[in-house]
């Protein structure tokens, strides 16, 4: 285990050090202390290392992550794991808005609550939120899975494409073209796998599934009121 004191060494030193790690490195375990709400902590990593950030961070923690596993023991600001490609990011606390925005792959686990726009424009990332999510979550979500063990706010899945949403609690309202969909065995199996990966003890059969009605995929004037 190697330790970087962010307050002492600075952000450039932290990111340069972690970004320079070779995929075959044996320096695989890193502790980052004193993050003190800093922005862009552990961004652009591309090696399968394990990084623990001890505390809370600001914007864009773990942004564009590839292969790395990044655990934040506190809470995170907007855009955690934005545009993540692969790997795993775990937030022990809460996440601000736009968590996992535009993520292409990997797994984002938020053990607390996520604010608005969680999973906005997601492109293949899997997101599991143990708590609640705010309004406009999964807005224009293209691919991937958003699992919400708590409640969802207004306009869930507005203008959703092919992403899948599972919600255990209540949904305040659905956005345009987002509908309740049947849960077939393959969906239940997929959900069970995500729950296990996220360390969430919940029963798949307690979740409902939401997705696209695909009515807005090609413009039709008769649907103008939905836009």
């Amino acid at each position: 285990m190697e330790t970087i004191d962010l307050a002492a060494m600075g952000l450039r030193h932290l990111n340069r050090t972690l970004q320079s790690l070779d995929p075959g490195t044996n320096r695989r375990h890193w502790d980052v202390v004193n993050p003190r709400g800093s922005h862009a902590v552990a961004v652009g990593l591309s090696a399968p290392v394990e990084v623990t950030v001890r505390g809370s961070t600001g914007y864009y923690c773990a942004g564009m992550n590839q292969l790395a596993t990044i655990r934040i023991t506190g809470s995170v600001g907007p855009g955690v794991a934005e545009n993540m490609m692969s790997g795993k990011v775990v937030v022990e606390g809460d996440a601000s808005q736009s968590a996992g925005a535009t993520g292409h792959g990997g797994l984002l686990v938020i053990k607390g609550n996520a604010a608005s726009r969680c999973g906005i424009s997601m492109k293949g990332i899997d997101i599991v939120v143990h708590g609640n999510v705010g309004h406009m979550s999964a807005f224009m979500a293209q691919a991937g899975t958003l699992v919400i063990a708590g409640d969802a706010g207004d306009a869930l899945g507005d203008s959703i494409y092919e992403a899948q949403i599972f919600v255990r609690g209540s949904v305040r309202s659905l956005g345009a073209d987002c509908i309740v969909k049947p849960v077939r065995p393959e969906h239940r199996a997929l959900l069970a796998e995500r729950l296990e990966q996220a360390g969430l003890d919940a029963r798949p059969e307690d979740f409902r599934r939401y997705g696209s009605a695909r009515k807005l995929y090609n413009f039709d004037v008769d649907n103008a009121g939905a836009y």
């Binding site: 862009a40 652009g44 942004g63 736009s98 925005a101 224009m140």
Partner: peptide, 26 residues
């Protein structure tokens, strides 16, 4: 989309630029 998904105003954009610089080594 007409808006960026993870920032809104100029204060956010300043942080976004900083993130991009960090990822690309300035």
């Amino acid at each position: 989309a007409c808006r960026h998904p993870d920032w809104t105003g100029p204060d956010d954009m300043e942080i976004k630029i900083m993130e991009l610089r960090e990822i690309t080594g300035w």
